[in-house]
Write a protein that binds this DNA or RNA. Sequence first.
DNA 1: GCGTCCAGGTCTACC
DNA 2: GGTAGACCTGGACGC
Length: 317
Amino acid sequence: MERDPDNVTLRDEVKPLRSTRLSIHAPSSFNFWRTVYSHGWCVLAPFSCNVEAKTLQRVLTLADGNVVSCVLSAGSRRVDIVVQSHASLSDEHQREIANQLRTCLRLNEDFSGFHHEARRFPRYRWIATSNSGRMLRSPTVFEDVVKMICTTNSTWAPTTAPLNNLARVDVRRVDSDALAFPEAHTIAGASEKTLRTEIRAGYRAPYLLQLAQGAASGKLDLEEWRSSRATTEELFKKMLTVKGIGPYAAGNLLRLVGRYDYLALDSWVRSQYYALHHGGRKVKDSTIERHYEQYGTWRGLFFWLEMTRDWHDEKYR
DNA sequence: GCGTCCAGGTCTACC
DNA sequence: GGTAGACCTGGACGC
C-alpha cells in the first residue's frame, strides 16, 4: 500500500485484466497519426504514444467510475482499439469508450471546408492531401484547461511533471502504470499546498484549485465551450476571465474547441515563424498576424500546421 | 556537486 | 492602457 499526497489510501490489488477489441469508423478525411501527433498532448498523461509503432495510449474514466486503458492504432477507414479493464465491458461501456475517443480524435467534426480552403492556396495543398487539421484533445474541456495552464510560462519538462503528478491525487488506475486524469472534484479536494509543492504546480496551484472548485461546483461550465454559440471573440474573452489563462492559453484552447481564428503566439511558434519567413530575424506580432489575415477564420489552423510541418515531413527539417 | 542565470506566460500593482 | 516585476521550475553553464 502507499499513500497519496492527501493521505488517500491506495491499494495495489492484483486483479486480472480483460482485453476487449473495438473499432470506430473514421471519415475519409481523417489521418490517424497526423491527429495524434498534431501537438504535445499525445505525450501528456494520461495520453502516451509510441512513435515507432504509431499507436496512442489513453486511460479513460467511465461514467460509473470504471477506469480502462486503450491502445489505438490506424485501420482502414477506422480506428482499432484494444481496451484493457478489470471489469467486463457492457455495451454501454463500449459505447462510452467509443464516444470519448471520437471526441479526442475530433471524428465528429467536419473539416471539408478547411480542406477545400487549403486547396485554394498552392502552399497549403499538402494539408488537404495529407488530411491534416484535426488536433488531439482530451475527453473533457476541464482536462484541456488544466493542461494548458501547466504549459504556460514553462518549458516542456516542467509542464509534464505536474501533469504526471496530478494523476496521483486520484485513486483510480488500471494497473500500476496507467493512471487516470483526476476529475475536477478530486483536484478541488486537494490543498493548495499539496498542489504547489507535491504536484509541483508552483505558483499555478491557486489557479488550478480555483478552476477545479469552479468546475466541480458547476459555477464554471467549461464543457459548454465546445458547443457555445458565442462568437469566437466573446469566447476568447470568456476564457480570459479564468485565472491562469492569458492570450496564449486562450488562443490554443480555442483550437481545441473548434475555433481557429486566433494564432496563439508563444515563444516557440514565433521563433519557427521567424526562421520560416524572415531568415530568423524577429518581427512584430502584428506582422505575423497581418500575414495570416488572408486565411480568414481558418488562419490559426493554417498557421499551426505550417509551423509544425517538419514534425511529419522530413524534407522540411 | 553546487551555485547562478535564464526562459517561459500570466497576474498584479503602479504610473 | 501600458509597463515592470514577481511568480516557479528545470536545464544549461561555470566553477
